[in-house]
Amino acid sequence: MLTEFITWTANPALYDGFIEIRWYGLFFAIGFIVGYNMMERMFRHEQVNLKWLDSLFIYVVIATVLGARLGHCLFYAWDYYSQHPLEILKVWEGGLASHGGAIGIIIAIWLYSRRVTHRNMLWTFDRLVVPVALVAALIRTGNLMNHEIYGHVTTLPWGFRFIQNLSEWMKGAAPIFTEPSHPTQIYEALCYLLLFGLLLYMYWKRNAEEREGLIFGTFLIGIFLPRFCIEFIKNNQEVFEETMLLNMGQLLSIPFVIAGVWLVIRALSRPRVPIKFAKEKKK
């Protein structure tokens, strides 16, 4: 019998004045700022042209927003958006898909590699995904603040009661709470934080970037395998998923996990390629 639970009453809006500032948007912005600074440190460490970083930032920001929005519209609600195409532009109303964001970034890095660095895409990915893991954790924390993407009902003592009538509650109505549910946003955020720590260790302590694709492959496994598993206790995002053996999030995760395993095996089966200035890490 359930004796304990957590009633979650966090307000999604950090500031609700002339301009509304939401925690989700703030975490998103913090992630990009911190990520930029981390990438700058990597570029300086390897004495890479810093102008490349400015271009990379633009490519990634645009690709993340467009990819995540289009991913949501195409993968989860195409029946609606195909009939209301102008609604796709209303990003501020919510509806972003991480798999779409991942696809968008892959396309952007392909263009970036051809037009800017003229290097293999894996060179960029092996560095970029280190801060991206942190961004993923921050985004899931934003989902927690938004009372969204939570899991099935649970009797575990850390079950969260989320506010169902969030928009009405923010306007002054009495809250209507869910039954205690798995805080799957926290589960995912913790997995991504652990992955972030692992990738930092691989880059700064193990020179893993000398094995092309190893860091990127580890990232793909570390992001999408936990996502696949946690989906089993997460509420489906759309009605059509109720009749599916695996939901859309799981189906979209499988190719990324397979790609990650292949990249790790490929990287470990090839000799290291020493990178100039990498020895400075040991000072």
Rank of each mutant, 00 (worst) to 15 (best):
E40M: 05
G222T: 05
T9Q: 13
I88D: 05
F277G: 08
A108Y: 04
G25R: 06
A267L: 06
L2N: 13
L190V: 15
C191V: 03
F5D: 08
R227S: 12
T124G: 08
Q164D: 04
L66E: 03
E168G: 06
C229Q: 05
P157Y: 01
L245K: 06
L74E: 02
I233E: 07
F177E: 02
K205D: 12
W23F: 14
E93P: 01
Y81G: 04
E87W: 12
Y192T: 02
V91C: 09
K234P: 07
F240R: 10
A174V: 03
P183Y: 09
Y192E: 07
Q250S: 10
K51H: 12
A267S: 14
G100L: 03
F216Q: 00
T218F: 10
L225V: 02
Y36S: 05
E238H: 05
E188M: 12
I21W: 04
G25Y: 11
Y81D: 01
R119S: 15
I186M: 12
M121G: 06
N146T: 09
A77Y: 08
Y76T: 06
N235I: 08
V273T: 05
M244T: 01
G35C: 07
W169Q: 02
K282A: 13
L198S: 15
A133W: 02
P274V: 08
A267P: 07
P180R: 09
R127F: 00
M202E: 08
R270M: 10
E46C: 03
T218E: 06
L128D: 05
T3H: 12
A208Q: 08
L53F: 07
P255H: 13
H45Y: 07
W110V: 14
E210M: 11
K279R: 11
L220R: 04
A174Y: 04
V61H: 06
I109T: 12
L268H: 00
G213N: 04
K279Y: 15
A29F: 13
T64M: 06
Q250A: 11
I149S: 12
Y112W: 03
L193G: 11
G249Y: 15
N49C: 10
I275T: 08
E40C: 02
I223P: 01
N37S: 02
R272N: 13
A29V: 13
H84R: 10
A63G: 05
R44W: 00
I186S: 12
L263R: 00
A174R: 01
V116F: 15
L86I: 10
K279L: 11
R22P: 01
I19K: 03
F5W: 07
L252S: 03
I163D: 05
T124F: 00
I106A: 14
G101D: 04
I149N: 10
F162W: 02
I105Y: 00
F277A: 08
H45T: 13
A97Y: 12
R115W: 03
M202K: 02
I107A: 15
F28W: 15
N236S: 13
E280V: 08
L14T: 06
L66K: 10
V239A: 15
I186Y: 01
V65K: 06
I186K: 09
E241V: 06
M39V: 05
I103P: 00
N11Y: 00
A133G: 11
L268Y: 00
G101R: 02
M42A: 14
H84F: 15
K276C: 04
P175C: 11
A29M: 11
N37W: 15
R206H: 13
L53Q: 08
L246K: 03
I230Y: 01
C73M: 05
I33D: 07
C191Q: 05
W52R: 07
I30A: 15
I254S: 09
